[in-house]
């Protein structure tokens, strides 16, 4: 029942809103799935759930089964028959399912106007009443701040799970000082509650102009790394802004890059487009298949490996 089927729980936290917690959660989930793990995503942002939109399953509804709620499946597990990156990920993709308050609301524009105790009750219910299939990883996407949802989440997790289940937290920030100062509060929150920080991800670090491939640091750069060093937690990497990823989420079109687009000194331009042709259509239509063409996928692939190393290493 509840979290018994889950081997590892990873929280995605940030003190600041709009830094890309849900976007990072989505990409971590897709990458974990591409590496062959079974993944669940739990969205406890009650007043602004974005996870249904990110996975393109806004119309889906949660089913009720005896004893609990059945999470919404995004895709089934299966073999992955493409040759793109056989070196960096396994041949099979793991199943992926989600749970969010967005699946329960009757209209997508309805506001959920709740005070603390009601939010607490809902978070507890999400943790105890969802019948997850056997999962290697459960990612929990949180709202911004350090308030009711976070307190309830950690209270319940610390009470009902074993320390080996609760792997730790990934903290997301953007590079500018305004965001860093809020995220420092979140790191202190982790320290106070005894949650291990698996690492810091700096999101929105730089934007590559699709016209001239010039990289502009829209929200400056480097703040995340300095903060991670200051707090003695691992820095997982910087993720640039990729309009193609936004388009993938908003319109569902496979990312294609103009020739000569450089990210981290590697060309991600036309190579991908050629490879697409050779792919068999089995998983091509799924979000997870399209995501392999995204320039952010290699970045996440190595970040996820770093996170998993940390998570598997019991005390470091």
């Amino acid at each position: 029942m509840g979290l018994d089927n889950v081997q590892n729980i990873i929280l995605v936290l940030s003190g600041k809103g709009g830094v890309g917690k849900s976007s990072i959660t989505t990409q971590l989930a897709l990458t974990l799935s591409l590496q062959g793990h079974s993944v669940g995503v739990l969205d406890i942002d009650l007043t602004g759930p974005s996870i249904p939109r990110f996975f393109g399953i806004e119309g889906a509804k949660v089913r009720q089964a005896p004893g609990g709620w059945v999470p919404v499946p995004v895709h089934e597990g299966g073999s992955r028959s493409n040759e793109t990156d056989s070196s960096i990920s396994s041949k099979t993709i793991g199943p992926l399912s989600c749970m969010s308050l967005g699946f329960i609301l009757s209209s997508r524009s309805d506001a959920v106007i709740w005070r603390g105790p009601k939010k607490t009750a809902m978070v507890r219910q999400f943790l105890s009443d969802v019948q997850w299939p056997p999962l290697s990883y459960l990612l929990i996407d949180t709202p911004p701040g350090t308030s009711d949802e976070h307190i309830s989440l950690l209270e319940t997790l610390l009470k009902t799970t074993t320390p080996s289940q609760l792997s730790g937290a990934v903290v997301v920030t953007t590079p500018q000082a305004i965001s860093i100062s809020d995220v420092k509060k979140e790191l202190n929150f982790c320290k106070k509650t005894g949650v291990r920080v698996l690492g810091v991800i700096e999101n929105m670090a730089g934007f590559v102009c699709p016209n001239c491939s010039e990289c502009t640091n829209v929200f400056s750069k480097g703040g995340g790394e300095i903060m991670a060093r200051e707090f003695g937690v691992p820095f997982l990497g910087s993720v640039p802004i990729d309009p193609a990823f936004v388009t993938l989420i908003e319109e569902g079109t496979r990312p294609v890059y103009p020739k000569g687009t450089m990210i981290d000194g590697e060309e991600v331009g036309t190579v991908q487009a050629e490879l697409q042709a050779s792919e068999s259509p089995s998983h091509n239509d799924l979000l997870v298949g399209k995501y392999t063409s995204c320039s952010l996928y290699p970045i996440f692939n190595s970040m996820v490996k770093a996170v998993l190393e940390k998570a598997d290493d019991p005390q470091s």
Binding site: F207, C209, N211, T216, V218, P243
Partner: peptide, 16 residues
């Protein structure tokens, strides 16, 4: 967002 190099305007957060 107007690229400071080529003044090409891109929609980083596109209004689909």
């Amino acid at each position: 967002f107007v690229c400071p190099k080529c003044t090409h305007e891109s929609q980083i957060f596109r209004a689909t």
